[in-house]
């Protein structure tokens, strides 16, 4: 049976409803903070704002603390309620998503570090515009993955997950231009490398957004689609998804 947002809160025990709602709310709050961290980290590079970058690095500890506290809440639910079926999948999906969010937070602070270094050295290499573009795209993926989680929307989760291969391609092409740039201008190497690491962090964030989408499918359909070909999964899922 496929759970929906509405009937997921129809437990006889109101306290159980409240506990699940609460932990879901905290996960989304953490998601909101992580999105903001990511946006700030991207701006730190795109606007050469080292103060903003430093703030992102500082605030990563808040994201870490949220991970620990949400995990704790999930532990308590598992111990007290022994949830089954979609409730169990919800708790597991939250545990996994929170882990991915924490990693996105880490990647955002790596981007912020690159931003701080780049702005300290003044002049930016080429590629900042491309970086901002890919950054916005990845940030949108994270945002939509969390949105799919709130709405239990497997269709949109799958289509967001499939975008990850485009992100990978864009990362590869950024890497190729970076290599050319470094070959032609050896004095730019350390700057270009800093930017390249930021690109790499974006690529990783894309992977984590994809993971979150997979957790949504697991939560709603009960099927683990990790390591499976997403196009095949999509064709198989459509007839059963309604």
């Amino acid at each position: 049976m496929t759970p929906t947002v509405k009937n997921h809160s129809h437990h006889i025990s109101r306290q159980f409803n409240a506990d699940l709602e609460e932990v879901k709310k905290h996960m989304l709050e953490m998601g909101g903070l992580v999105e903001k961290q990511l946006q700030d980290a991207i701006n730190a590079i795109a606007d050469a704002d080292s103060a903003l970058g430093s703030r992102v690095i500082e605030q990563d500890s808040i994201v870490d603390a949220m991970e620990v506290s949400i995990d704790e809440e999930c532990n308590l639910i598992l111990a007290r309620r022994q949830p089954a079926a979609s409730d169990l999948r919800l708790v597991l999906a939250i545990i996994k998503t929170v882990r991915d969010l924490e990693r996105i937070g880490d990647e955002a602070s790596k981007i912020a570090k690159s931003g701080v270094k780049l702005s300290e050295r003044g002049e930016f290499p080429n590629g900042v515009a491309e970086f901002r573009q890919l950054g916005n795209r990845v940030k949108k993926m994270v945002n939509m993955a969390l949105d799919a989680f709130t709405r239990y929307d497997t269709e949109s989760a799958l289509s967001i997950a499939m975008e990850d291969s485009d992100v990978d391609n864009e990362y590869s092409s950024a890497m190729r231009s970076a290599i050319n740039l470094m070959t032609d201008n050896p004095d730019l190497i350390s700057k270009v490398l800093n930017l390249l690491w930021a690109f790499r962090a974006l690529e990783r964030i894309g992977d984590h957004a994809k993971n979150i989408c997979e957790h949504v499918v697991y939560l709603v359909a009960g099927t683990d689609i990790r390591h499976e070909d997403l196009a095949t999964v999509a064709t198989k899922m459509r007839p059963t998804s309604d």
């Binding site: 049976m1 759970p3 129809h10 437990h11 025990s13 079926a85 169990l88 999948r89």
Partner: peptide, 19 residues
């Protein structure tokens, strides 16, 4: 049955819902 039951009625029972 306990991780992914097919029917809503089963799901409601094993997860303690009133359907």
């Amino acid at each position: 049955l306990f991780t992914n039951p097919s029917l809503k009625q089963t799901e409601d029972y094993i997860t303690g819902r009133y359907g």
